[in-house]
Design a protein around this nucleic acid. Structure first.
Lengths: 330, 330
DNA sequence: AATTTATAAGAAAACGTTTACAAAATGAGT
DNA sequence: ACTCATTTTGTAAACGTTTTCTTATAAATT
């Protein structure tokens, strides 16, 4: 391994000078700078990141940790794409932590992880009191995407309102028996989206004087298959319904295929509205509540980058708008 | 910041002893071990990763770099999921590099990146001679997923054969004018999949004495929208075709919706076969060439983990099988 | 020419660990 | 009680940088 010493010898200067060139300190003559640069080139030297971090007071790692549950889901993919599009233009690289179980979450909020990065983006996970304290102690900036906490910069949408808009629209267009396919209302990892959307559904129904029928509510996973099964279950229960609101497009697509399979016409017999507006939704003509997935990621990443630059004024709580997109299924 | 010195003082021993406890060296009495552990606990000490790496000869980072182009595409997502499912069980964490442009690729094969990880998984990218030499120099293990190079462990499928199977099937079932929707044949990043599949198409046609009509070949991106447009273009050209083979399911779904929109019946008028077998394919009844996306990732990650353990016998060139899945579109 | 001031370069002390080596402490065998 | 081996502990030298002092050199002021 080639070290700064080798470079110093090759260039005929001291290691201090080499270091200064490396950190382009102004206090070094053009002449020696050239010599050192040449030596570096000749030897193909690249400074040890580890030694560097140790010597500098500030343990800069140039790494941003991203914590995301089930990162293979469409929503998280889109958020990740947004984050990545910003970060890949900086000189930070990405540490990715996929959390699917409680243990994973615990592992992430540890010194080991925080020691190795300069900042963190947490997607969709709720920050508990203990975790918040821990983060504060590390002193490193953390921004929340699709989640809210008073003490951390957050970029999010109003999930309750989104669901409210969708269900209200269904009601306005004459639907009276509205089924609801959601993720787990009490998510063990603390993803609040399903819960908030549940609240929105309740509010819209209450406002219209309609009753919420728990038998028309299915809690299930975020996949096409799970949506398909939810559709089957709803049909099997034999309770009539004329609309389905789903907490994700992928579930909605699954529900839709189950209904179509049973000979139901959409939207004549049953209207369907999803959530997210993934690209498939456009092509399938699925009505949905569009949330700016990529943008949430982008904005979150930008905010973190600013915080890392020390721009404290970039602390922010930003709500991005949702949009009800009506297509062919409602 | 709490250092090993503080712990030593608190426990009333020397820093060497603390270090021994940390690295659970056998040469330390139970009694002192307990004292040290207590002190560590009391102080909430966590060793500096950076100092540690510097002191150890072997600069272990406990990081695995994953290099993947356009990681938001279904195929790469599935591969990533496979990789992650293995790595998340180890104590390695993941550095993710998304490469979309040539510059990105150059940036990745650099000392800066290799210094910060113990090994690398490269997905779908072709390794050039220069890059291979560079990697060899670093001495760090690299495994290739969905790509092949004689000098590196590789896990891959036979793309040529996959395309051959699909097209041969179409021919066997009476199709004569077969369109081909692919990614770029000469991918600037060196993804060989489209090229290999192109070869497979040519071979199947030649074998059957059919001619390849370049006007029935569209090179485009891997998205539903691009597939949709490809379908439109094919229709607009006015050249009759009775089948379409696509290099990905997502393109196939796009093509399909364009054809259906024009009133064509599938598979009566036009048969369609995709590639990948993403979950949507099953629900949409899309015929396809299934490749074990998740498994490629899993196996690749396992091989890398073994190599990192120093098990040199785990160097491997492994071809995983493809399977032609016939559903409703062919 | 002698003094001061700027500027450029070097010497050496950090940074927080690990580890080879030396030194105690313990215990067994006489 | 005395040596010798064995275990446990401490001391100090690495690891590859940065950075604070110094010091040497050149330029500017008297």
């Amino acid at each position: 391994m080639i070290t700064i010493k080798d470079v110093a010898k090759e260039a005929g200067v001291s290691i201090a000078t080499v270091s200064r060139v490396l950190n382009n300190s102004p206090k070094v003559s053009e002449e020696t700078k050239r010599k050192v640069l040449e030596a570096i080139n000749r030897l193909g030297y690249s400074p040890s990141f580890v030694a560097r971090s140790l010597a500098k007071k500030t343990l800069k790692t140039n790494v941003i940790s991203i914590v995301v549950p089930f990162f293979t889901r469409d929503f998280f993919m889109e958020v990740l794409r947004g984050i990545n599009s910003v970060i890949s233009k900086s000189d930070y690289s990405i540490h990715l932590y996929n959390v699917e179980r409680i243990e994973d979450k615990e592992r992430v909020f540890s010194k080991e992880v925080f020691n190795r990065c300069d900042g963190m983006i947490v997607v969709s996970l709720n920050i508990q009191k203990k975790e918040a304290e821990f983060i504060k102690e590390t002193g490193k900036p953390v921004v929340l995407v699709d989640s809210y906490h008073p003490e951390f910069s957050s970029v999010y949408v109003d999930n309750k309102k989104g669901a409210y808009m969708a269900v209200k629209y269904l009601i306005t267009t004459g639907r009276k028996k509205i089924a609801f396919v959601s993720g787990a209302i009490n998510d063990p990892l603390g993803c609040m989206a399903s819960y908030k959307r549940y609240e929105g559904v309740l509010e819209a129904l209450r406002e219209a004087g309609l009753e919420f029928n728990p038998l028309l509510h299915i809690q299930t996973g975020f996949s096409l298959e799970k949506g398909y099964r939810a559709g089957k279950i709803l049909l099997n229960r034999g309770i009539p319904f004329d609309a389905v609101f789903c907490t994700s497009d992928i579930q909605a697509i699954g529900v839709m295929s189950a209904l179509v399979e049973s000979g139901l016409k959409i939207p004549e017999d049953v209207a369907i509205i999803g959530f997210d507006d993934i690209s498939d939704a456009r092509y399938l003509g699925l009505s949905t509540v569009r949330q700016p997935m990529g943008e949430m990621g982008e904005v979150g990443a930008k905010v973190l980058l600013d915080l890392l630059l020390g721009i404290d004024s970039s602390f922010i709580h930003l709500e991005l708008p949702l949009e009800l997109v009506i297509r062919l299924t409602s």
